[in-house]
Design a protein around this nucleic acid. Structure first.
Length: 380
DNA sequence: TCTTTGTTTCCTGTTT
DNA sequence: TAAACAGGAAACAAAG
């Protein structure tokens, strides 16, 4: 069977699931499973929404063989692994069987290249469901926010973010975010992964990968950059920079100053894309608060930002584009960049929420009209 | 419904 | 030379 056939089978399964709501267990796979030689699936037939990894919404223990197959193919795709070397026999297992396998088992079956990747991914899915069974809706919302953020990045390693793993669920601080984000239970090693990745990707690799979400396995490196300097920021696929760049090349037409008005199409798509958007955004969703909250959870921000002078409120962006992407994710704006974020930051100077720090790149200081970051305030 | 506020987007120019 | 900074201008959307 061709890869297109397998792809269409999976697409059909996706559509069925989305039309009927997401059942915990999908119908059993068709009697004649495709040859694993065709496992290298093209994602071309998926629309972005249909391409969503729906098995993420199902506990791995409940995965069917079909689910497992799709999961394997997605992971293989994500690292450009040639699945033709695999035997279908190994992929015809269901979730419970898969969950029984150790890391060594998986590596033994799927090889040193794909195996660890699969094991890592499986652990995430398992952890996610274990976590969800232990925590309340707030954390689930955080999981979704981060999941969405990472999904949108389309970096394979980013999907390995570990939420709440090995972390106690810290009681909410006195800070009243009234919001849908909370950094308490997040670890972000993977953001560092992405940064590391970007350092190893040329522009062409980047642009080609942004479409398919594929990377050569050689690009997957250790996240231990160790560097605390921000330096080469990684270009996120969804960031509009690439688009802007090509636009500049294509046409040198001068645009009018200011923000372009939304077209009717943009307007309607905004409405339909975010049906849950509440009319009244909760308080505590300001950019400076978002930044502050990253900073006051140093054990969680994993190198996104750091304090330069904790007492004085001086801080530095280490992974500026990553922070901007997180901010964009929070505001449901996939085209957020550090450039835009920093413009908003500069508006805080006038209001004395931030103070200028001259001569130092990516360094800002909280001003007298900011709050909630001081050691005394936090009772540290 | 109007106004205000807090961004967001895009731009040009400057500094590092 | 590129990245970051600075700030004007205009648009947008939530909140009051």
């Amino acid at each position: 069977m061709s890869s297109l056939c397998l792809s269409s089978v999976l697409t059909h399964a996706n559509l069925t699931m989305y039309q009927n709501g997401a059942p915990d267990v999908l119908p059993p796979p068709p009697a004649s499973l495709p040859s694993i030689n065709s496992l290298h699936i093209s994602n071309m037939s998926y629309t972005p929404s249909a391409n969503a990894q729906w098995y993420r919404d199902v506990n791995p223990h409940c995965w069917t063989a079909d689910n497992v197959l799709k999961w394997i193919s997605d992971n293989a795709d994500s690292i450009s692994f040639d699945a033709s070397t695999l035997s279908l026999d190994y992929c015809a297992m269901d979730g419970p069987a898969l969950c029984q396998m150790s890391r060594d088992d998986i590596t033994g079956v799927f090889g040193p290249q794909l195996g660890p990747n699969l094991h890592h991914s499986l652990q995430e899915h398992k952890a996610k469901y274990e976590l969800q069974s232990l925590s309340g809706p707030e954390l689930n919302e955080t999981c979704r926010l981060l999941d969405n953020f990472l999904d949108n990045l389309k970096f394979p390693l980013l999907s390995s973010i570990v939420i709440g793993q090995a972390e106690e669920v810290i009681p909410k601080r006195e800070l009243d975010y009234g919001d849908d984000y909370e950094l308490n239970s997040l670890t972000m090693d993977t953001l560092a992964d992405a940064e590391y990745l970007s350092d190893n990707l040329s522009d062409s690799e980047y642009s080609s990968s942004s479409g398919s979400g594929m990377f050569s396995s050689s690009s997957l490196g250790s996240p231990e950059s160790g560097s605390c300097e921000s330096d080469p920021e990684f270009p996120y696929p969804l960031t509009s920079k690439v688009h802007i760049k090509s636009e500049k090349v294509e046409s040198r037409l001068k645009r009018p100053r200011g923000r372009p008005p939304k077209t009717s199409r943009e307007f309607s798509s905004t409405i339909y894309d975010s049906p849950k958007k509440s009319k009244h955004a909760p308080r505590g969703t300001h950019l400076w608060e978002f930044i502050r909250d990253i900073l006051i959870h140093p054990e969680k921000n994993q190198g996104l930002m750091k304090w330069e002078d904790r007492r004085e409120g001086v801080f530095k962006f280490l992974k500026s584009e990553a922070v901007a992407q997180m901010w964009g994710q929070k505001k449901k704006n996939s085209s957020m960049t550090y450039e835009k974020l920093s413009r908003a930051m500069r508006y805080y100077y006038k209001r004395e929420i931030l103070e200028r720090v001259d001569g130092r790149r990516l360094v800002y200081k909280f001003g007298k009209n900011s709050s909630g970051w001081k050691v005394e305030e936090l009772g540290m």
